[in-house]
Simulated scan of single mutants.
Amino acid sequence: MVLHRSGDRAVRIEAGRFLAARIPGARFIEVDGDDHWFWVGDEKMLLDSVSALVRRG
């Protein structure tokens, strides 16, 4: 799973898509927001995505 905020001010969204495209079996998830660090801004959306992945395990 590659999580990336759509308006990330540190790393452009294209970099996240590029990374996910080169990891076999990776899933790219774009979430709203413009912060780079997961603990800044809306954390719930990111944590919900990680929780869903873990539950599918």
Rank of each mutant, 00 (worst) to 15 (best):
3 L>S: 01
34 D>F: 03
33 G>D: 01
11 V>Y: 02
41 G>A: 11
42 D>M: 13
47 L>F: 11
43 E>I: 14
19 L>E: 01
19 L>Q: 04
33 G>C: 05
53 L>M: 12
50 V>G: 03
57 G>P: 00
21 A>P: 02
6 S>P: 00
5 R>Y: 08
40 V>N: 13
33 G>E: 05
30 E>P: 00
15 A>T: 09
17 R>Q: 14
56 R>S: 14
20 A>L: 12
30 E>A: 15
49 S>V: 08
30 E>W: 04
7 G>M: 09
38 F>Y: 15
49 S>I: 01
7 G>E: 11
57 G>F: 11
40 V>M: 12
9 R>S: 10
33 G>L: 07
10 A>W: 03
57 G>T: 10
2 V>A: 04
48 D>V: 05
54 V>W: 08
4 H>R: 10
27 R>V: 12
37 W>G: 04
3 L>V: 05
4 H>D: 02
17 R>E: 15
26 A>M: 06
51 S>G: 03
29 I>N: 04
7 G>S: 08
23 I>G: 03
41 G>W: 00
24 P>F: 06
4 H>M: 06
45 M>S: 11
47 L>N: 12
22 R>I: 05
43 E>L: 15
32 D>E: 14
45 M>H: 03
8 D>S: 06
27 R>T: 10
11 V>W: 05
41 G>E: 04
48 D>C: 01
13 I>M: 09
56 R>G: 11
8 D>P: 02
18 F>R: 12
22 R>Q: 05
41 G>L: 07
26 A>W: 07
44 K>W: 08
22 R>C: 03
21 A>D: 13
46 L>S: 02
45 M>C: 08
48 D>E: 02
7 G>F: 08
23 I>A: 10
51 S>D: 11
44 K>T: 15
10 A>F: 03
27 R>W: 04
46 L>T: 07
8 D>H: 09
32 D>V: 06
51 S>V: 14
34 D>Q: 09
50 V>F: 05
8 D>A: 05
30 E>C: 06
18 F>G: 00
18 F>N: 07
20 A>F: 06
47 L>T: 12
24 P>K: 14
3 L>Q: 01
49 S>G: 07
18 F>D: 07
30 E>G: 04
35 D>E: 10
9 R>C: 09
52 A>H: 01
50 V>L: 11
12 R>E: 11
54 V>S: 01
9 R>K: 14
7 G>P: 00
6 S>F: 03
19 L>S: 03
56 R>I: 09
34 D>M: 03
22 R>W: 03
23 I>Q: 06
40 V>I: 13
52 A>D: 02
40 V>L: 13
38 F>L: 14
35 D>F: 11
47 L>K: 06
36 H>M: 09
18 F>Y: 08
40 V>R: 15
53 L>S: 08
34 D>Y: 01
44 K>C: 03
13 I>Y: 02
27 R>S: 10
4 H>A: 09
29 I>Q: 10
43 E>Y: 05
22 R>K: 14
41 G>T: 09
33 G>T: 08
50 V>Y: 04
5 R>Q: 08
15 A>N: 14
1 M>C: 09
26 A>T: 08
